[in-house]
Design a protein around this nucleic acid. Sequence first.
DNA 1: ACCACCTCTGACATCGCTGTCAAGACTGCG
DNA 2: CGCAGTCTTGACAGCGATGTCAGAGGTGGT
Lengths: 333, 333
Amino acid sequence: MNRVTISDVAKAAGVSMKSVSRVINREPNVSDKLRVKVQAAIDALGYVPDLAARSLAGARAFTIGVLLDNPSPNYTMKIVTGAYQACRKHGYHLLLENLESARNDIAEQAADMLRNARIDGFVLTPPITDCEPVLAVLEAQGIPYVRIAPTSFQGRSPALAIDDCSAASELARHFWGLGHRRFGLVTGPPEHGAAGTRRAGFKAQIAELGGSIVAEEYGGFQFETGIGAGLTLLAREDRPSAIFAMNDDSAAGVMSAAAQLGLRVPGDVAVAGFDDSWIAQSVWPNLTTIYQPITELAFEATELLIERGSSEQGNGVRLLDYRLIERGSTVAP
Amino acid sequence: MNRVTISDVAKAAGVSMKSVSRVINREPNVSDKLRVKVQAAIDALGYVPDLAARSLAGARAFTIGVLLDNPSPNYTMKIVTGAYQACRKHGYHLLLENLESARNDIAEQAADMLRNARIDGFVLTPPITDCEPVLAVLEAQGIPYVRIAPTSFQGRSPALAIDDCSAASELARHFWGLGHRRFGLVTGPPEHGAAGTRRAGFKAQIAELGGSIVAEEYGGFQFETGIGAGLTLLAREDRPSAIFAMNDDSAAGVMSAAAQLGLRVPGDVAVAGFDDSWIAQSVWPNLTTIYQPITELAFEATELLIERGSSEQGNGVRLLDYRLIERGSTVAP
DNA sequence: ACCACCTCTGACATCGCTGTCAAGACTGCG
DNA sequence: CGCAGTCTTGACAGCGATGTCAGAGGTGGT
């Protein structure tokens, strides 16, 4: 292997290995002259530091872990993509780790995982993001973590999210503007905090406008359970003219239920979802929904972890923008 | 950090570091007595070798790369899951690498990627699996690779696949058994070799049985393009009674097209797809399709790479089992 | 009993980089 | 001009494993 090493660069630049190391790591107290000289040698030789050696020698592991426990390949893939891009950008490794937050031994799972690898920090995704035992284990080991879309233990770590509440409000106003007054709700899993926030935001806005929520049914974030919720809601005598499901999968289930009952979407019932996941454009008519920047959330979370220290920020929640996406599934009643 | 190191184990077992190393790596010429003694110490201390140190010191990098260029999150996620499991099992790192096989500089992309990391081997997924410049770059560097579902350059590397041809035949016989005689085909992207194999297998079987292919339309593996193909096929005067799309996404598009034309699936037209991807159960009626063990393909491919050498096998194609999944989208005409 | 030839084990250098520490080069001030 | 205090640089010892090579112990043939 003809790899270029740090000592090749040092020789080429006529400086010590350590100086090259300083330039690479942007350490303070390096003169401009030296920096320029070294950088030129690095560029000329096409030097790329060896991750294994860096992590062996130094304090950092150059690896970020992502804790996953989401059944939706869409969601997971977007998270992985974002985290991966951030790692790529900074020359880090990405480690995926699947935990099962529903099991009792979740703390043990987390501890096991830590035994196996050195990791600089973790990105926690829902529903692990709200899983206290995991937070406790990480804190006990002093490993930094960033959470995505947490709804519990605010301020316990840096976090990234969208404003689920006002997103749901905006969707409510969208329906209202079209002329809908009577609504059905398809709820998410109880442990999924953000789903509860969406529901509350929607209801609050509708109440403020003077509309009514005819009924709520459990949709469980899945297509199948969404069908069940849809069938129940749509069979009612006082059928709502519009249904808001807490994610796209269950919204697609509602649309399927409508088809089974011979009702047309959006003519007989308007439907909206949440996430703008892939399924939103794989049903007909395409689903009106809220776009969530999942990839960006993961990217930012990962970068926050990597650059931690360079700008010591607090444990606030950083909100990214969502966007209402109007598609064919919602029209005036 | 209280990590247990190899010398802790050596001390505990009363042997040299090197002996511990031998046991870990299953090197030959180690007495049973020593092996047992060392293994006991390893277990007692919960020792896990440090990947960074191993890869720095040794010839292996303990990292497997997966080359990806597939727009479907479903497919990609399943591949990643399988590869990840294999890496996990053997204590390897997994490196994801996105290439764009449609661009001209694909060889350069591949070369760039190799400059940045030491990697023991690559898993190539479609369509990169059939991308000659990439194969050439890997071979030039002497890096082993395993391909998933290749249709070109057979015998140039080990490969894993399912028998697309006979899977498509089976689907054809399924339709035939239900009483269908006149078929429409929704094709895949031209560069996707396996799609061509499916088509050929289906046509050959139908021809042998004496049925007719009314028409073929380009479906491009995507939902949107599937709608277009469906609209064209279903508007024909001699409308086929059954449609086979080369993947599930485009099949779902066909179903959507049927709905738009006021045709019912499966009453007016039966539809089948291929992959058993997530969308197959997210449409109504659920889609009849061929289950492909994508996760297993990736798992086996990765493991083949990791265990390479221990059993030097040739460049054959190893076939895994597919399975016809009958769901609601196909009934008798 | 001796030598050649295995099999098994250990000492030690080494992989590429960073942390530590000390020394050299400057600065400003009395 | 001298000295303390800062900024800048380099020498060197590790990080935790593996590769190499030499030596210890056993076996069989003569």
